[in-house]
Computed example of a mutant assay.
Amino acid sequence: MKKALILLILLSAQMIFAVVDTRLVYVSNARDFPSPGLSTLVFDVEAISNSGNVQINVFQDAVQLDATFRAQNPTVSFSNQLFPLSDYNTTQDYRASDGRIRYTYTFTSGTRSTINNTYTRIVTISIQYTTGSSNGSIIWFTGLPNYTVADLNNQIITGIELAIPAELGIIPLPVELSAFNAKYDEKGKVDLNWVTKTEVSNYGFYVERRINEDEWTSIAFIEGHGNSNSPKQYSYTDNDLFAGGSKFQYRLKQVDTDGQFEYSDVVEVEIVPTKFELSQNYPNPFNPSTTIRFSLPKETSLKINIYNMLGELVETLAEGTYEAGYHKATLNASSLPSGAYVYRIESSEFTQVRKMVLIK
């Protein structure tokens, strides 16, 4: 009889002093790909029991988005629920007027879910929002529903909402580019300029270029500022316009420190030379390779020949029909002896000759 009484006292004490605490756990906050202008914050709601496994009849709680976060037009979704819909009456929703996100679960029939003496995930909450330029935050909601947990006997279990983690107390909202433009100047180069309002984990920008709807190629990398709450200006100058075309398109591949990336909008510059021209090769003198550049104001059939000083044809470097624009051809003279050579561009509308020197 004494043993039974002691056991009853211990069980009663456990019920009286049972505690279930809850906390929020940050998972991620990143731009969506390929959705432009959107980001998603993900966090878990977890709970822990100090008295072993507790079967749950009721679990209800809510968090709240601050005004800055609410201004980003968030949409909220729920996943990984501990309490199955088949066994629990479930309410999970977002109220835009005050930013309340509630999640309540009441047992109806079937099998009760259990909260353990190690942290148990209650639900995963994902918030997709329009990328902004400031910091948001999440707090515990102070109105209804208040934090309530009831066991299988519908006895209320005490507990607290633990401190909000720093990653959710101040949430940097990743920002899109506020400006990105390209401008061709008369010195024969394209200047690219762009501005960010704020940055979160910004590793940097790959500058990519496409000419006449050809493949995109990376032409430069510009290091980012990492994390910043103030506008940052960036620039890059494309000096290599002798790439075989007249329509130059540029885009930025912004990469985060975790490897996620997003492309900017495309900017375009139309560059059409005003005259036929054969440029001096570079480098000159050279060994063993040099680059010959030429510009065409319209589509042209042409040939570029290389001659030695005796007037003998050494090599036909280029031949065919070329679009209007800036072009280049590379001569590899590894098999030629040192000396002076002449290169000549020939077309029905244009002929020009220049001299170059090979020194081995």
Rank of each mutant, 00 (worst) to 15 (best):
E270C: 02
K298A: 05
H327A: 02
N305E: 06
V269F: 11
N305L: 06
D265N: 13
I304K: 13
Y307I: 02
F294V: 03
L310K: 14
S295G: 00
Y326P: 00
T316R: 15
L313F: 15
T274R: 13
E319Q: 13
P283R: 12
V272Q: 05
K328I: 02
A329R: 14
L302W: 10
Y322C: 00
E319W: 13
V314P: 12
F261G: 01
K298F: 09
L296C: 07
E262G: 05
T321H: 06
P288R: 11
S289G: 10
S264Q: 13
E299F: 06
Y322T: 02
E299C: 00
P273H: 15
D265L: 10
T291M: 05
E315L: 08
Y322V: 03
T291C: 05
N281K: 13
F276T: 02
T274N: 13
F294S: 00
F276K: 08
T290C: 06
V269D: 00
G325L: 03
V272H: 08
D265T: 14
Y326A: 02
S289W: 12
Y282F: 11
E323P: 02
P283L: 06
A324N: 11
S279G: 07
E270H: 08
L317A: 09
S264C: 08
I306Q: 11
Y282G: 02
F294L: 01
Y282P: 01
T291Y: 11
M309K: 08
S301K: 14
R293L: 04
T274F: 11
E268F: 11
T274S: 09
P285D: 07
L310P: 01
F276L: 02
F286H: 04
G311A: 05
M309I: 10
A318S: 13
Y282W: 08
L313H: 15
N284Q: 06
T321S: 03
N281A: 03
I306R: 12
I304Q: 07
Y263N: 01
E268M: 07
K275R: 14
T321C: 00
E262S: 09
K298H: 11
N308H: 13
Q280A: 03
P288H: 12
L278K: 14
A324Q: 10
N281L: 03
K328D: 01
F294M: 01
L296R: 12
T300W: 08
V272W: 11
L296K: 13
L313V: 15
P285I: 09
E323F: 08
V266N: 06
K328H: 08
N284C: 05
S264R: 14
E270G: 04
S301Y: 12
A329I: 09
E277M: 07
A318W: 10
S301E: 07
E312Q: 15
S289A: 09
Y307M: 01
E262N: 13
L278R: 09
E299N: 04
E299M: 01
E319V: 09
V269R: 14
A318L: 14
S289Q: 15
H327Q: 02
S295R: 15
F286T: 03
E262K: 15
E262C: 00
T274Y: 10
G311L: 03
I292G: 07
L278W: 14
Y282H: 07
E312V: 09
S301R: 14
P273N: 08
T290V: 10
